[in-house]
């Protein structure tokens, strides 16, 4: 492995392996996400029962697939800063973070990416097994997680999910740095969680919001965490629309990394460490 990326690859692998060990957390998270997914699916079914067919922007079966995807990949959204970093801020171990001969931004970034993907992997597989495989076998086809629109949609979805990891990690970095500034990450995490629920598609697929909001909803950064890849998955975004979605994700990734890096330099120059 080239020496330039060796530290970052090692940090990613170590964190990934460590996070995979938390099996009880994965099972508990999965159970919660099944429960919420079930409730959401039933609420949507009730709504759609009263809608005239052909008048909804997306179909019930697309919404159900969207919901299971959202539940499966819940922890790929940047709900909070990296707990390892906020812990280091509180205990003062952040000094050691600055003692390593590597770029602190990149180091924290790969750790955030490992933290999120390792938690997402077991949850997503379990959800796929239940909602995608077991449901159809049990005759619950109408309630199940359907396959992607076509092979191209799946390929673009996979690419879009890679961008989700990149853009979410870049956002986690902003939360990490704000934890260094404020010494307490709880306030900002609460704020971010409500924005994510409203604007990422977590509560309601963005396509179901009023038409006049659609352009804004697609462009704002929170769509890049969830809504864009899922629309690509069920064929809601195709061709140039899908390309534009991917470009938006890439755009927000770059913007967040540029802001994060500049902010980090400023914050680290003014770092204070008090006591012992």
């Amino acid at each position: 492995m080239p020496d330039a990326i060796r530290p970052y690859a090692a940090a990613f692998a170590a964190r990934f392996q460590l996070m995979l060990q938390y099996r009880a957390a994965a099972v508990a998270g999965f159970a919660t996400q099944c429960w919420w997914g079930g409730i959401k699916v039933m609420v949507y079914a009730a709504f759609f029962a009263n809608a005239a067919p052909g008048e909804t922007p997306i179909t019930l079966s697309q919404v159900i697939t969207y919901t299971w995807l959202a539940q499966a990949l819940l922890v790929l959204s940047p709900w909070s800063g990296d707990p390892e970093i906020s812990q280091a801020v509180r205990t003062g171990a952040i000094g050691y973070e600055r003692l390593r001969p590597i770029d602190t931004y990149n180091w924290w970034y790969v750790r955030a990416a490992a933290w999120m993907t390792a938690r997402a992997l077991p949850r997503a597989l379990l959800m796929l097994a239940v909602a995608g495989v077991a449901f159809p076998l049990l005759g619950l086809e109408a309630w199940s997680w359907r396959p992607p629109a076509d092979a191209l949609a799946f390929a673009l979805f996979a690419l879009s999910m890679v961008l989700v990891v990149l853009v979410s990690s870049a956002f986690v970095m902003l939360l990490n740095i704000s934890a260094v500034v404020t010494l307490d990450e709880r306030g900002i995490n609460t704020l971010v969680a409500s924005l994510l629920i409203a604007f990422s598609g977590n509560l309601l697929p963005l396509a179901l919001y009023p038409d006049w909001m659609q352009t804004f909803l697609l462009i704002q950064p929170f769509a890049s965490f969830l809504d864009i890849p899922f629309r690509i998955y069920f064929g809601g975004l195709t061709g140039w629309g899908a390309a534009a979605g991917l470009a938006l994700q890439a755009f927000w990734t770059v913007v967040m990394i540029v802001i994060g890096r500049a902010w980090m330099v400023r914050v680290m120059a003014r770092l204070q460490m008090q006591g012992g």
């Binding site: 060796r6 530290p7 940090a11 001969p101 590597i102």
Partner: peptide, 8 residues
């Protein structure tokens, strides 16, 4: 081992 890689 992690430090080995971090310090290259």
């Amino acid at each position: 081992d992690l430090l080995r890689d971090i310090y290259r």
